[in-house]
Design a protein around this nucleic acid. Structure first.
Lengths: 203, 203
DNA sequence: GTCTATAGGCAGATAGAC
DNA sequence: GTCTATCTGCCTATAGAC
């Protein structure tokens, strides 16, 4: 039952890995079945055996990505850390993606949104909703235990974080300088760690 | 010499207008010469007369967009307004674009970056650089006259604004709710209007 | 400037052999 | 599961008539 190293992933998994990278780098309209097949040394006909069409492949990519992201959030949840540290860990998830010269899958697909098959559209929105929900919970708890101070509602702050990090990835990538991203992320989170420092904001 | 209404724009201009909208909605790999030609009731061969290829059309789009944006910034500069009001006016430029169901041309092209012709890549970066430069100037002046308070350098704050607004457009569009964008923009700018309220941050 | 006609390539997709 | 062979359609682009 024990596997020593990574067991050779089956073809469907390898297809998903290659396709995911291509979409994150080039966009949904910027890659083809032929690109994926070439990298794997198989034919496009084989690709169609595993994923009936590009739309189905895209939906599989989204399901996998969202699931993986949710697991990463659960890992952060399990840590005995305060609000600010959890937000930093969250931002680090994005930095890791950018470090691989990629955009967030759903950030990229948000750009491609108008051209996406219907099924994919809903999955993109759901991804953002789940991130927002998780962040809202963290922000709410942080406000209650005093580790986070911010103005406005927790959900608005959560949305600001999601869009701020997505935008920082988008704009940073052409510069090829991850520091640019980290500085933006730090600035973004700092405003939620120290805003409203005075208990009674002077209306 | 006086034109009563809008003089019928020449073909090249109409091509640019249609192509710009298509790129902002669908991305550079999500539209074709055929799409543009169909909308204008001409053929793709005519399109090639005005713009030799998709790459040249793309560069013309970027030149036009950047120029238009620079003019908008000059208009804001000319206003006798304080820092915060100028930043709000800046954010409003983005809101106007999003209101047309579009992304910022360069935000979209940043997503397509890896697949862009070389000439277009440089223009995208230059667009961000100019926005950053303008914002840095506003932020610097605002800090000097006391109308803006923020932590860190002016250029870092400028980058945070650019990426924050680009990301807010990106994430908001699938929801079709411009309020979402405005709330994010307000939150983003608020952190620059009131941050570092205490003169001596407790380090 | 705009057209018709056409080239040559690549796209996503399918049938059927192995 | 993977292949060869093939289809249809769209893509960018060009030649040359009007």
């Amino acid at each position: 039952m024990l596997r020593t190293k990574r067991p050779a992933p089956d073809t469907a998994q390898r297809i998903l890995e290659v396709a995911e990278r291509l979409v994150q780098k080039r966009g949904f309209n910027g890659f083809s079945y032929a690109d994926v097949a070439r990298e794997l040394g198989i034919t496009t006909a084989s690709l169609h055996y595993h994923f009936a069409g590009k739309a189905q492949l895209g939906e599989a990519l989204l399901a996998r990505y969202s699931e993986r992201f949710s697991e990463a959030l659960s890992v952060i949840d399990a840590r005995p850390a305060a609000g600010p540290a959890k937000l930093e860990a969250y931002a680090e998830l994005y930095a890791d993606v950018l470090n691989g010269q990629r955009l967030c899958l759903c950030g990229m697909l948000a750009a491609d949104y108008e051209t996406l098959p219907k099924g994919m559209r809903q999955s993109v929105v759901t991804f953002f909703d789940e991130n927002e929900r998780w962040l809202t919970s963290i922000l709410q708890k942080g406000r209650e235990d005093g580790s986070l101070q911010y103005e406005g509602s927790a959900v608005d702050a959560a949305r600001l974080i999601v869009s701020g990090l997505e935008g920082a990835m988008l704009v940073t990538r052409p510069y090829g300088d991850i520091t640019r991203f980290r500085v933006a992320a730090r600035g973004l989170l700092a405003s939620l760690t120290r805003a409203g420092r005075s208990q009674a904001p002077a209306d």
